[in-house]
Design a protein around this nucleic acid. Structure first.
Lengths: 106, 106
DNA sequence: AATATATACCTTGACAGGCGAAGTATAATG
DNA sequence: CATTATACTTCGCCTGTCAAGGTATATATT
């Protein structure tokens, strides 16, 4: 277990949805953005990232479509739905609650 | 998944160690203390609590001994070791790092 | 021309922590 | 005498994470 793996568990979906709030995006780009935002302290493992996409799409929180790149590798773009936005908002609240709880207990 | 289960994952050991920093204690008492501190918002499930004790003891972070109660149910007391103290301190630091990371990303 | 690197996605199987459910035992309360 | 509170234990499942492996295209290097 690295430093943050268990402590970050459960935030993957929220992290992805946060990124998609700004614009439609795809896996590789989202992960690069995470690395830049955190000065390379953190990145999602690919298997984690893509399994989160599956969950989110199955739950109707995001939808996907293939990009129309004429060159380079193909990209599957994701867009957040209204349900996804609501879920994100709830997750933010849950985080605030969890943070308070943890600060109280540790 | 209830509100906090995944967000609190990985903090169980730290919560227990924090309590043991103050005094030797036993499972039931630790859990009651958690409930009081959080105004009944949170409690450790028994299976979670006792499996954490097993892990902590196997790792040498706590040691246990039976209480000498003359009445009532028997109690297994736990005491934190020096290794446990060091582990707690590290966990606190990891939490600060994780918190910063999460705030950056969600 | 061949090799390495970057971009981009996907799947399988295992692991580990959390937890539902069930069980055991003693003491106090109504 | 039945219920509740105290107190601990074990079994087996669930779920998010991730190591490892795979596919494909484009660019840079040797």
């Amino acid at each position: 277990m690295n430093i943050t793996s268990d402590l970050l568990r459960g935030h993957t979906e929220t992290i992805i949805l946060k990124h998609l709030l700004e614009k439609d995006s795809y896996g590789y780009e989202i992960n690069k953005a995470i690395q830049e935002k955190t000065n390379n302290q953190y990145e999602l493992k690919e298997a984690t990232l893509y399994s989160a996409f599956r969950r989110l799409e199955t739950s109707g929180l995001i939808v996907s479509y293939w990009g129309d790149e004429q060159t380079g590798a193909r990209r599957r773009y994701y867009a957040i739905t209204n349900e996804g936005r609501a879920y994100y908002t709830q997750n933010r609240k849950d985080w605030e609650d969890a943070k308070t709880l943890i600060e109280t207990l540790i």
